[in-house]
Computed example of a mutant assay.
Amino acid sequence: MLLRLQALSKRFGRDWVIRDLSFTLERGEVVALLGPNGSGKTTLLRLMAGLLKPTRGRVERGGRPLFLANPPAFHRHLTAGEHLRYDLLFHGFHGQEGDWRGALARFGLPENLPLAAFSSGMRKRLALARLSLLKPDIWLLDEPETALDGEGRGLLLEVLAEARGQGGVVLATHDRALAEGVADRTLELGAA
């Protein structure tokens, strides 16, 4: 078991966003979260990552999670190379700093261009490069396909296949075709 939710609930003020949700993510599994805007997909990912505290219930993690926000957050004055080098050091990958150049090349990203000059699609590619480099056990992806062109979507599918082999994936998406193409099961969330 990589992730277990037990009667998980989250309320903001008087509004319940998630109510009594239970499920388990196993190693090698991809679960897609589907639902309209406001249905709690992003909130659920943040709960799984430990970025939010549940109102009730529990989240148990059997591995190291990493959350990809939509849109991904980066320091605009840093370059892609600087971001990946700092990420490796921050996450304790000492001695593997050389891997970041290969990740930039794989995802078609320039090393020394500040992120302020990146398009939305380039920032999403950098987020995917970061995930592929850090190799978490639990991949929590919020609309990973947004802003990607055809080549970027191909890279996303490669990353999802790698993620399945390294751990497990929960991805929130509006793209039913993507969910049905990559997920072992889907979890439909209703409007709040």
Rank of each mutant, 00 (worst) to 15 (best):
L44I: 04
L44M: 09
L45G: 06
L45W: 09
R46Q: 13
L47C: 06
L47P: 10
L47Q: 04
M48F: 01
A49V: 05
A49Y: 06
G50K: 07
L51A: 13
L51F: 11
L52I: 03
L52Y: 10
L52G: 04
P54S: 10
T55Q: 09
T55E: 10
T55C: 04
T55W: 06
R58C: 05
R58L: 12
V59A: 04
E60W: 12
E60L: 13
G62N: 05
G62H: 07
G62R: 02
G63A: 09
G63V: 03
G63I: 03
G63C: 05
R64K: 14
P65L: 13
L66N: 02
L66S: 05
F67M: 12
F67R: 01
F67I: 02
F67D: 03
F67A: 00
L68K: 02
A69I: 00
A69Q: 13
N70R: 12
P71D: 01
F74P: 01
F74Q: 08
F74D: 04
H75W: 13
H75Y: 15
H75S: 11
L78H: 14
L78R: 15
L78M: 15
T79C: 05
T79F: 02
T79S: 15
T79Y: 02
T79L: 08
A80M: 06
H83Y: 03
L84M: 11
Y86W: 14
D87I: 00
L88T: 00
L89A: 14
L89H: 08
